[in-house]
Nucleic acid binder design. Sequence first.
RNA 1: GUGGCUGUAGCUCAGCUGGUUAGAGCAUCGGUUUGUGGUGCCGAGGGCCGUGGGUUCGAGUCCCAUCAGCCACCCCA
Length: 450
Amino acid sequence: MQKAALPKGTRDFSPEVMKRRKFITTTIESVYKKFGFDPIETPAMEKLSTLTGKYGDEGDTLLFKVLDSGDFLAKADQEALNNKDSNKLIPSVASKGLRYDLTVPFARYVVQNQTHITFPFRRYQMQPVWRADRPQKGRYREFWQCDADVIGTKSLLCEADFIKIYHEVFSTLGLGNYELRLNHRKALEAIAKTCGFEGSFTALTVAIDKLDKIGWEGVSNELLSKGMDHSGVETLKQLLNKVDFDQQALDLLSKILTDSKEKDIAIEELSTVLGFIRSTGIRLKLDLSLARGLDYYTGCIFEATIPGSGIGSVSGGGRYDDLTGIFGLKDVSGVGISFGLDRIYDVMLAADLFKEVEQETKVLFCHFDESALLYGINLADKLREAGIASVVYSDRKKINKQFDYAHKCNFPYVAVIGDDEMANGVVQLKNMATGKQEKLTVTDLIERLK
RNA sequence: GUGGCUGUAGCUCAGCUGGUUAGAGCAUCGGUUUGUGGUGCCGAGGGCCGUGGGUUCGAGUCCCAUCAGCCACCCCA
């Protein structure tokens, strides 16, 4: 006998859990639909060449590779094999991989279907993704992303739409205390210029992204050691405070940053977004320390967290000006966001935000003998025709066992069938919550349970 | 990839400084005299004490290794 077990970082979902997960996904889906997005799906596997090189070096190591079928060793890179060089061996034995996110497969989809797509294209996609990360709290190897993207327009109205979507989704889920942080990739570049650090843009973003973890002192020490001078550090310090996203914040930013093309773009785009959402009263933060790891972002970037949840971001996104370029389609700008279903679930569970899951099957037919069982089968079919979910107890067991089953499964009603009921053309319907029961004909039964 | 913590029944755990046949609660199944569930009462099944080695007269308990799980770092949803 072998032990029943799952691969590390993967989970089964019980009916109770699935009902709650569905609540989250249908909420997100209905908001996406309301904003004019249509669904697509893509395969779990992509060609490895589609995935590699899109998520940075670290991302490549986190990709699950799928071993080729057949005699894969025959066509393996013999030199790499002899040298036991795993990394070099991979391309010759694995040509597929599990998708790492939904954005890159989407870019591939857009390029491949460009002649059939009408731009701007608004799609949503809710599917699992896989990462060979070491699992821990709020981190799984298989998890679901709920993405929405608009591709084929540079309009900042899209960014405004996503801010409204964030607000509606989190409010509906009961997570109205969410914090949405906004930044602009060009603002980061302008900051690098202002601080005399344009040559080490990546080092700058890596450092300031750690602000909430290692504090201002840690960040400044790191930057000083990387060669930033004291005046640069002082300037930076004025910028990194997380502030309300409003005109005042933009004015201040404009005052501190030295003139550059990037500054102009960042300020102008952020003001445009602000203008689009001003009337809604939605609040968000301008956080110039927000960097986000994925380097395909070029414009506005978003990240949403639930303060006090102990789990990192539950959603992220941003604008990418040239993600389709790598697949041969130039000058197509897109912007999108992604909700992390599993993390939202964890946060909601911890905050006790799920309502009691109700049993959707209305009634269980219980019986005393073979003829009552057959009688029940017919009645159940009549109820189903009327759209009432019902089950006939499938085995011949004592009536108290049948009731026990109904109780444990949370069926709201039990319909008892015996000789009396069959003789009179009725059933004994018992309300399991109140304990009350009454004799009803089929017609009355349907009327009662509708 | 780096570090820390933990492995005893299906689940949560107890098992004192090593000492007879390994315990509890919950869960499961059966019964409570058979046309009615929840609570109560009675009873049953279920454990190579993660795995391998070592110390010892004797190991669930001590030591080493290994595997697995959890947590943190890195990075991220």
